[in-house]
Amino acid sequence: MSDESVLPLARPMIGVSGKTGSWRLQRPLYDSSKCIKCRLCWLYCPDSTIDINEGSADFITINYDYCKGCGICSNVCPTKAITMAPEG
């Protein structure tokens, strides 16, 4: 990067705005028995809060520290392996 200019640049980092999971009104719940490992939830999650676990019994892990509960993963899941439940 140039030393001459003042630039509108930032580097992405985890949790720069705090743990956004506290914003959640609904919680995505994962049922590994219905999962067909299609990765659509991982692809669609707008906050990258879904990790893939190759070779594990639970194919995905949802990071509840940052998941805002938007429900997109549940919506795109073709087998309803992810369902939304109200937060307590």
Partner: peptide, 29 residues
Amino acid sequence: QPYVFRAGEPIIMGNIPRDLKWNMMMRED
């Protein structure tokens, strides 16, 4: 050019700065 967007080297351009003076400094620059 001052920086290049490359796959695998994520940078963010144009995010809201924490301090508005940075915003003004960019205009001055």
